[in-house]
Design a protein around this nucleic acid. Sequence first.
DNA 1: CGAGATTGTTCACAGACGTGAACAATCTAT
DNA 2: ATAGATTGTTCACGTCTGTGAACAATCTCG
Lengths: 296, 296
Amino acid sequence: MSNLPDIAVFVQVVERGSFTAAADRLEISKAAVSKYVGRLEHRLGARLLNRTTRRLTLTEAGAALYDRAGVAIADIAAAEAEVMELTGTPRGRLRVTAPAYFGNAFLMPAVTGFLRSYPDVELELDLNNRIVDLVKERFDVAIRITSLTDSSLVARRLADVRLLTVASPEYLRKAGTPATPADLSDHVGLSYTLQHAPNEWHFVADGKRPVTVHVRGCLRCNSDDALKHAALAGIGITRFPELFIGGEIASGQLVRLLQDYEPPPASLCAVFPTRTNLPPKVRVFVDFLARHLKPA
Amino acid sequence: MSNLPDIAVFVQVVERGSFTAAADRLEISKAAVSKYVGRLEHRLGARLLNRTTRRLTLTEAGAALYDRAGVAIADIAAAEAEVMELTGTPRGRLRVTAPAYFGNAFLMPAVTGFLRSYPDVELELDLNNRIVDLVKERFDVAIRITSLTDSSLVARRLADVRLLTVASPEYLRKAGTPATPADLSDHVGLSYTLQHAPNEWHFVADGKRPVTVHVRGCLRCNSDDALKHAALAGIGITRFPELFIGGEIASGQLVRLLQDYEPPPASLCAVFPTRTNLPPKVRVFVDFLARHLKPA
DNA sequence: CGAGATTGTTCACAGACGTGAACAATCTAT
DNA sequence: ATAGATTGTTCACGTCTGTGAACAATCTCG
């Protein structure tokens, strides 16, 4: 056969810009990449890449080859994906990223049942409270709290998460305990960066109208963990998913405030890169989560 | 990498219509083909081919995959060929077919020099007097005497070949020896099948007008060897390239006739499948032949 | 209808291929 | 400027993959 792997590797090298990056992406060693490209050049009898140990340049021949072969390789991958989406059974590696607290508290216990149901799916969980780039790090699904901001992604709502307003005992001793949402205007709020209006806090209470108060923000951060640490250190008041701070409330490290005025529930979403059809492994995983999240 | 060889093999199976044929074409074992296809089906989680031990049918999924991947594979092969044609050095397997007598008398001696000049070319000579299908049997070049009839092929004239009019002594004893072309109308002519007008023989002589005579054909054949045997057996008069019957004339098995009236020289051609640009290995081979045929 | 031929699949073995460490060459920091 | 980091390449070793024969299933020809 007209040795295709060589070309696949070559295309990957061109697209990633280096042999090492291509090796990482293809999950083979640098040595193998070097061999593949060398073999292809030898077979075609033409140098494809000018390598200067620090910078790769496409030869004229290399550019010509990439122009035509690059799209063909992509076509094949797309065709494969299409077949898999249409008629395939759940199978293959499934890369999922989720908030660490959600993973520990809920995902890990549920996962065993999922893997039993779909033995051909190989799950790769990345429990991490940072915001990841789905396409860049090639995740199939991300579990997130916030509503999505990146329009190139699509989301599916899995469940509501209850948010609790909390602060540390030390902070309350210093700044006093608010009794109504209106009292918050005198307090310091810790907010999550990725929100529409981080310092506008909404509350709802049974039988009353929704309330919006402006808090004075002193710390805005894109890390759940950092915000929790700030709250524990007594820097201010913040609002967190119940799951995330259940332990701290039970142990008394954080105190729940305004119990009659809950924040409107946030949405727990499964987020995935835009695709016409989802691969079966992703579909069944999200379905599984939605089914098992109903009781919670 | 999204395992491409699997798809290449699958495409080949579809195009050739059977696992065995694909194995032949790809020059791997049937077992390997079976494994490749099986692996692909397993990876996609869908059956691609319905195999009934005697007939292959494309699954809906298989048809979808082939529709898109087939052209992509062809594109890649074309891109490879293009690069090789534009900037490549002579390299790879070169399949050549030539008349046996030409191969033995001329090609084999010349070939050693060619291989020394281009050590990366692997020559595969098929010396055979039958007419082969270039594309079907995947030859890169054919050396032929006749002008080409198949318009899908292109040819390049390499040299003129001198044709001699000959017959066996036995035949001449029975039928007499013709002294002029006009005498041939009483004789039996053995003709090669693939000629415009097999029974119209042309002659030219120094200082005289070209002559055309009609001979009575009793045997028309598409095999050089068969015609030679017929001539040796005394069945009739025929015209052959000098190289082809030099030995028989020297040994007296065939007698040269009408020495003053030679047939117009035929063209020795290199014939190849139509391509925009020839691969370097083919180009240098034909150049080499043309260069070394001038003296002869 | 039955024997022969041909299909695709399975299995143990041998060879090819990728691996990982060491290497030379280059760039980029302090 | 010098040391450190990072690039692509090379080499011996161990694993994975293709091989070839045997096999069951099917079709075809007399």
